[in-house]
Design a binder for these strands. Sequence first.
RNA 1: GCGAUCGUUGUCUAGGGGUUAUGAUGCAGGCUUCCCAAGCCUGCGACCCGGGUUCGAAUCCCGGCGAUCGCACCA
Length: 505
Amino acid sequence: MSSERDFNEIITGLAKKRGFFWGPSPEIYGGSSGFFDLGPLGKLLKNRLENQIRASFVRANFWEVECPTVSPAMVWKASGHLDGFIDPITQCTKCEQIYRADNLIEEQLQGTKISGKSIDELTEIIKTHKITCPSCKSPLGAVESFNLMLKTRLGLDQEAYLRPETATTTYLLFRRFLTFFRDKLPMSVFQIGKAYRNEISPRQGMLRLREFTQTEGQIFILEEDEKNWPQFEDIKNDVLPLLPYQTQQKGDSKPLKMKMSEAIRKGHFQNPAYAWCVHLTYSIFKNMGFSEEKLRLRQHFPTERAHYAKDAWDVEVHTESFGWVECCGIHDRGNYDLTRHQEFSKEKLSVSVNKQPVVPNVLEIAFGIERPLFCLLDNSFQPESEIRDTDWLKFPPEVAPIQIAVFPLMGKDELLVPSREIFESVMEAGFVAQFDVGGSIGRRYRRQDEIGTPFCITIDYTTLEDGTVTIRDRDSMEQVRIHKDNLIVTLKKIIRGSTRFESLK
RNA sequence: GCGAUCGUUGUCUAGGGGUUAUGAUGCAGGCUUCCCAAGCCUGCGACCCGGGUUCGAAUCCCGGCGAUCGCACCA
């Protein structure tokens, strides 16, 4: 489809033209890469995605919280981000090329253990082994650390950082959660909020941002509950597209359609609670409007995991622009975080099990919303065709930014007045709707197609005679006539998806 | 951050030392119109930023910012 045009550029062009997103921001000053503004439609779409996410978590018995985006350095020291979230870099003294010091050493001195080595030790290794610039063979400068966190200051001189993930800020509330949940584990909470990463060179537009909105669900859980997780019963027969690392090792990238129970039996998941989290995440992505054939779940290789993770699976979405895109991580973080914060804060972050203090484990679902937002635009894009000479967006009705458009067939007063009445009633019913009189009726349908509005209501001369209006379906471009008294209830059904448009005919 | 290519109305683009800066589409107002971008009229709108060369720069040169691709990076 549209092979002669670069797909990403089409999506970005459409996004700019129609007010989904603009950037890089701030545009009038030339922009900084990694930052985007959401336009009115982009914000509406994002709100819809957030609401789907929120509803999914709440249904799964998670409680929402919100924490500050700035925390003092100590927090990030404890979380491991201050030391672990860095790239040790070295610069060639002559050609000024910058390299990852650790990669360079591993590459040139095979078998050297560098994990846990300090900056000074790395400099020493480079010096004693005479490692030089790979491109010009000149000596390399001292190793410095490049931290991916954005630094700021509290008051006059307290060192602080913008959070690179929301999760850590959630963990800090552990003792408060114990009180709130009346000391009963497991406890499930989630947070939707901004996080910041100072990427060296962000690319791929909305997919790698320096500021993004992260959604994270956390379950604080004891080991025996991970093994004995009753909710797993509800989903054990569901089939998910799984890509375990062993499959990838064989060079296979086609997911296995596997029952959850079978995946547990074969050891792809370590326990039912973690498996249930993977399933929940998959269902969140389905609720955001992604179709099954565009989704897969990929397990990380043991060497690929973050510093805190015991096991990790990703949700990936297939896009026309970039192929498979990593959209969500599901991590078994063990009790790494709580143990570290207990150690650094000197606060007790354990519960009592058989009179012994036990630090619970954490299962985490984490994703940025901007990625699925872009992927949904990508997946929804339909190129122009013979029957419709414009590109259009096939958003699922429940997440479309504008749900309803209302038109008088023509801009005459006798049609305008009842049209406005209908429009008011649609707005009053809680829909996000648009009223449009400009241009021919066909042009107005196209405009709505282009922003993915699923249904258009048209008021014509028959309306004046018998009180019926037409509902026009975006996907089929077909219309049904319906009495205006039944309009709202019908719209609710077809937007929720409980009734199909075809059945109205 | 390095290298290559590039930056022209809201969007897509032509051009390339002296131009009223091209075209399409869009948008706004009007006329017309009984359902899928019809037509007509009127109007709106651009050379990324800074410096240099030059009588004159959107055009050439340098720098910045941004974009695409490759390298590196993406805990």
